[in-house]
């Protein structure tokens, strides 16, 4: 089974729950095998798999709930009151745990697009395929997602110092 461990990792990041992630991976493989004739060679296989996984998740109760935030693109965070940019925080020391917690705090559509781009290293076209959105939307959503992440990280580094 290709990409088994990385698909499971993504499923867990998406669902934030072990049992849901396990069911989701199982169903994804079943659907992928059934749908394989519709797979176009040359397109990114992981993007295609993720698309199945995601579409399956969005038909479940938990998925519907997670996707509610899809329309509201703002993340409520307190803007740091200092002129210290989050970048300075990274130049000093990157705390893995902080990044993980920050990713978990992000709305699902922000978290997944950052993971597809930075973890799975998909290009914009592949991310667009995985999420069924045009490239322009990929870029604007990614822009907002990263901004939200930097704000959350800046808030976290401020909280850690306070």
């Amino acid at each position: 089974m290709p990409h088994f461990a990385s698909l499971y990792n993504l499923a867990f990041w998406l669902t934030q729950d072990r049992a849901t992630a396990e069911d989701l991976v199982q169903e994804t493989y079943v659907k992928a095998l059934k749908g394989f004739p519709s797979y176009h060679q040359g397109t990114n296989f992981r993007a295609w798999m993720y698309r199945i996984l995601r579409n399956t998740f969005l038909t479940t109760q938990a998925g519907l709930k997670a996707a509610v935030s899809l329309d509201s693109d703002d993340v409520r965070v307190v803007e740091p009151a200092t002129d210290q940019t989050p970048e300075v925080f990274f130049l000093t020391r990157v705390e893995q745990e902080t990044i993980r917690r920050t990713l978990e705090k992000l709305p699902m559509h922000f978290r997944e697009i950052i993971l597809l781009c930075d973890l799975e290293e998909m290009n914009y076209k592949e991310v667009g395929l995985a999420l069924s959105i045009p490239i322009g939307t990929v870029m604007s959503r990614l822009f907002r997602a990263r901004k939200a992440m930097r704000l959350l990280l800046a808030a976290a580094s401020q909280g850690a110092k306070a």
């Binding site: 088994f4 990041w13 991976v25 970048e87 990044i99 993980r100 950052i114 290293e121």
Partner: peptide
Amino acid sequence: ARLRLKNATRIAAADRFVPAPDLRLRI
């Protein structure tokens, strides 16, 4: 700085969740 955040995200998120040993077999 942005490259460092990208790299740090990859490292923090990769293999964060590992499948149960029997999951592959079950599937």
